[in-house]
Design a protein around this nucleic acid. Sequence first.
DNA 1: ATAATAGTGTCTCTTAGACAATATTTC
DNA 2: GAAATATTGTCTAAGAGACACTATTAT
Lengths: 234, 234
Amino acid sequence: MVNYDPGAFPPFAVTVDLVVLTLRGELLNVLLVKRGGAPYADQWALPGGFVQADENLVAAADRELVEETGISGAAAHMEQVATYGEPDRDPRMRVVSVAYLAILPNQPIPVAATDAADAEWRPVEEALAGVLAFDHDIIFRDALERARAKLEYSPMATAFCPDEFTVAELRHVYEIIWGRKLDPRNFHRKVTSSKDFLVPTGRSTVREAGRPAQLFRAGTAQVLYPPLTRSQVA
Amino acid sequence: MVNYDPGAFPPFAVTVDLVVLTLRGELLNVLLVKRGGAPYADQWALPGGFVQADENLVAAADRELVEETGISGAAAHMEQVATYGEPDRDPRMRVVSVAYLAILPNQPIPVAATDAADAEWRPVEEALAGVLAFDHDIIFRDALERARAKLEYSPMATAFCPDEFTVAELRHVYEIIWGRKLDPRNFHRKVTSSKDFLVPTGRSTVREAGRPAQLFRAGTAQVLYPPLTRSQVA
DNA sequence: ATAATAGTGTCTCTTAGACAATATTTC
DNA sequence: GAAATATTGTCTAAGAGACACTATTAT
């Protein structure tokens, strides 16, 4: 970029693609959209779209999230994962796509009930088994592995929970995403002693059975030290 | 990207910017280039350039590395860090830049001796203190923190070493990048017992003084378990 | 022998995980 | 009280860091 002719660069389209994760029931779900036209007509794809001329990348990702789910990106965890730019990844033209990972609190409501009628929640196992359009299988796998890894050393898991949540709810997030049971007693001790991870609200839940649980909200920690190791087994 | 008019997307330029790190003497160095023309004329910047129409992103990064250092990307560690796309990051036009971190074995030779006369190695502390062109300060800091963090749980440090190296040389890498002394005895035990991190070659060094050291090469491990913790102190 | 660096052994303290025990609720 | 879930406590084993000690070279 030191010496160049401003007109002599190849034009690219830049898109953002979103891997939107949430918990629904006992399963981790990803938001997929059904493609209308060619290429990959009627195939499932990650939601996404063009970055506008005056828009930065996160703003484009936030806008797409709102368009597809009605949920404001401000209410969600949103982070950039990677950028994909194989010359032939879109048969129509040269498109570079910046992938974002978005995490929402539990979304029992099907998105089909919103104005984004083409979007649906799908269990990640199902999505992994199928074939997504473009290189979206790769993007999806990369983002999913990022999410699984970041649970260990970041407070990202709280993004799956509502504003106030119990230790059991948080543990549930880990159990579903890692696909293994965790010891409730050790988990409780670890998360409550991890500095700035959780802040007690003073309130507690009313439950159908058992002792009520304290309610917490996410603290200010950006990194968990010590980390919650994925090898922790029940 | 579901329904759209193929002509109706804003055109972007896509560049790659490189944070090339190596050790020179006792200091971690970064490769910078001096800008010729406006904007940011005569200011230091990260090396980089346009992605060509038929080129994927890593290929563009490799090509830039060869152009600036004469070193093949195949011989270096190269990984994508993040993508930067603020609308005003380049005053001339809309440019999205994909940043790559490249790590080279010790480069005592100044690059000014090569055909890339505009490029120079600078100690990272010096580069952090100065002001780089565009948003390159942010890119540089992000890549540097990525490198520091990845030393803990990945075998990336071996990329700073020649093909065959001693445990002391490897420790030296950690000490310089983390800016602290590590206990040679504990370090030795940790790296040699970390599965698939190091493979002994059977050979050993001749040294000016002291017992000769075994030579190792990088093993197949992609993740170090257990990690080498940054809090390890001498 | 002395200096220098490589590499091993050992001790202590912390922490992870197993699991017993206690606390607080609903039925 | 029984059942259910929350929370605390205790034990054991593994790992981290401190550091003594041994090994192998050059001078």
